[in-house]
Design a protein around this nucleic acid. Structure first.
Lengths: 228, 228
DNA sequence: CCGGAAGCGATACGATCGTATTGGAATAAG
DNA sequence: CTTATTCCAATACGATCGTATCGCTTCCGG
């Protein structure tokens, strides 16, 4: 048996390079050559890892999806929320990718989403990621609703609906921030306001600020210094 | 003076061609040659109308933005809403571009948004369009709030916040429908549910169903969607 | 030590891109 | 009609794309 290399590791490195380029020049602005240069490998090496460009992009989008989902999950288990409601806040804030240090991830996500809207094979992994996130939200909402009011006075909101709403709202806000239509602070405020409404509807006691930045909102890079 | 042509008309026709192609092949998937072919003009004619491809795209995005905004406005004046609240429902439904016949417009919008996230000149017109839509929503919300409850019991919601929320939610839902994560019906349901909540918060009497939607609840396959 | 398979850097190739150029058709003014 | 000017279709051009090919280099099994 001749030479053997760590394909999985290389694939990941290439995927990271794809992300960096997609962040800088948008989707379709990533070429095999640029990717190879960014990943510090030769074009031939990239071609050995992926049979075609499409396959490479597919792997990259899967990679990003897993990273985001993983980050949300980590956030939940790392800082054990005092209540399901605050956990919900944390998760939503994480999904929205509003913080400055996640702007790149947000741009990458948007790039892939736009591409996937016209390329069915790319849409698959994205749907999977969305489904995972939505399931997580549904679970948190259900949990919060149960731990919340024992009184059943108001209409108990449909967790599916609420999760859809939250997910779509977070996505939309992210997009608007990327476009510069909203500032990150405005988006956070809007998101928080919606969460407050949701908590009331759930009958939970309104928890403290869900964000990890109690004081100044500007440039919240206090937490999760881990680059990647 | 020699020959003279209707440049404005030609520009519009080219913009339409750009939209058709962006709808089919995504952003960056539109080439000058394809555009020319679609618009039934020669490549040279396109080059005469626009100094560069970027200029052409800029014109096209402006064109689309105006068309959408105009359509929303038309919808409002055409069917004189019984109340500001129903008008709000109509406008939101129109913005969300959920109906099948507007799927193309939605894809085009998403394409431009993704492109604009990494290309500042493109972002300008998009921001303008968003600002216009948001202003319109703010106006409708304010109107609805005034015509609504005279009682000031609950916290009077901030129209700016509500407009932002509505706009972002509509955008996010549109995206999720395009990706196939939600069906158009599910998205409409979610949007409607949010509007109901908003109406209650505004203290307005809940109006009848705001759109021509079928009322069926079909949330069976919301989550754990197909892999691809 | 060595045979040979696997990896990969370099390079070639054909297609397609945006843009520049150009020669002739079309048309309004004199 | 002539002429000057605008328009445009065709074509050329250089760059860049994804992909295929081809020799080296590298390294494991025997």
């Amino acid at each position: 048996m001749p030479k053997q290399v760590d394909y999985e590791g290389r694939r990941r490195r290439i995927a990271e390079a794809v992300c960096l380029l997609a962040d800088e020049h948008g989707p379709e602005g990533v070429s095999m050559r640029d990717v190879a240069a960014r990943a510090q490998v030769s074009l031939g090496a990239v071609q050995r890892c992926f049979r075609s460009k499409g396959e490479m992009l597919l792997f990259a989008v899967d990679h990003v999806g897993e990273r985001i989902t993983e980050r949300v999950r980590t956030r939940l288990t790392a800082s054990p929320a005092q209540s399901a409601a605050t956990a919900l806040g944390h998760a939503t804030n994480e999904i929205a990718l509003l913080r400055e240090e996640h702007r790149a991830e947000a741009r990458i996500w948007l790039a892939f989403v736009a591409q996937a809207a016209v390329s069915e094979p790319l849409a698959g992994p994205l749907r999977t990621s969305y489904a995972a996130l939505q399931n997580l939200l549904v679970r948190l909402i259900t949990e919060a609703a149960e731990s919340g009011s024992a009184d059943e006075g108001a209409t108990p909101p449909n967790p599916q609906h609420e999760a859809c709403t939250l997910l779509a709202l977070a996505d939309g806000l992210t997009t608007h921030v990327l476009l510069g239509h909203l500032t990150a602070e405005e988006a956070e405020e809007v998101l928080h306001a919606h969460l407050v409404g949701l908590w009331e509807r759930l009958g939970t006691i309104r928890p403290e600020k869900p964000s990890d930045t109690p004081g100044a909102h500007r440039f919240a890079r206090a937490v999760s210094a881990a680059p990647n």
